[in-house]
């Protein structure tokens, strides 16, 4: 004879653990911290090695030169490079009043990254049981992303650029943490292989309801053959924001900054 008992959603008594409330409080903390950030823009690609961090850092510097208040969150937790690209000084991060101060680049770009926290040359490693670490590592990285959004004193910003790692998992986590999916800038190199990977990423972003500000073709005019930037722009009806050579000039970065800064 099976037991007859209430199930989860039938229970209405107060729950001291309040796990749902704890999650809700975490989300509110993100929303409160970003309330003074005019917009969050995700820089993404489905492909690794296309120069997302390079473009993010130089775009941020150009936006700052234009007079904007700019922040960069390096969401590539396992391969952080933004602090070096922004040339932020090496220093300890200051904690006060429940927040941590971001590093600031010579141009005034506010930046935070795991690269500021982990030992030079060491991988991001977590304490915890080694066996079946895949079960909890993803959750821990998503929590780390949330804390970097919520606990860094970003202050009032015109734009917070989020430099995403390859793939779409981190974008999904970011979209779930924000009130709305952030607009995205997609980075590709000219090749058909990159085009294919970025196409998948753009579809994933669009499926999440994220507006796409445009695509940037990086490393154009060099050894990589193809027209991924044009093809993707046409296919998704989005602007080709730039076709960047291997050594873009400051003028080219300024031009992209004007286009990104003025869109969305």
């Amino acid at each position: 004879m099976p037991l007859n008992f209430r199930t989860y959603h039938d229970l209405t008594e107060p729950d001291r653990s309040g796990l749902a409330e704890q999650i809700g409080a975490q989300r509110r903390r993100v929303a409160e911290r970003l309330a003074v950030v005019a917009r969050v823009v995700a820089v993404m690609s489905g492909k690794g090695g296309v120069g997302k961090s390079f473009v993010t850092a130089h775009l941020a510097r150009a936006l700052a030169r234009m007079g904007g208040a700019v922040g960069v969150l390096d969401a590539d937790l396992n391969g952080p490079t933004v602090p070096q690209l922004l040339r932020v000084p090496v220093a300890s991060c200051t904690l006060h009043d429940g927040v941590v101060e971001p590093a600031v680049s010579p141009e005034g770009v506010r930046c935070f990254s795991m690269g500021l926290l982990i030992e030079d040359g060491r991988p991001l490693a977590f304490r915890g049981p080694a066996a079946e670490s895949f079960v909890w590592r993803g959750a821990l990285e998503a929590t780390a992303l949330r804390e970097l959004l919520a606990d860094v004193a970003w202050g009032p910003l015109d734009v917070l650029l989020v430099d995403l790692p390859p793939g779409m998992q981190r974008f999904t986590e970011l979209a779930e943490l924000l009130p709305e999916p952030p607009p995205v800038v997609a980075i590709t190199i000219p090749t058909p292989e990159s085009e294919d990977a970025v196409r998948r990423a753009l579809h994933a972003a669009r499926d999440r309801g994220a507006p796409c500000l445009g695509v940037i073709e990086n490393m154009a005019g060099g050894p990589f053959v193809g027209d991924a930037g044009d093809t993707l722009a046409r296919e998704f009806a989005i602007p080709l924001l730039a076709r960047l050579p291997f050594h873009p000039s400051a003028h080219e970065w300024d031009r992209i900054a004007h286009r990104v800064g003025g869109s969305a």
Partner: peptide, 21 residues
């Protein structure tokens, strides 16, 4: 909540001097 509390509790390869109060 302490700032970056999960990161600080969980990361095994953090710099000893990463933070200053």
């Amino acid at each position: 909540p302490q700032p970056l509390e999960t990161i600080r509790a969980a990361v095994a390869t953090g710099k000893d001097d990463a933070f200053v109060e």
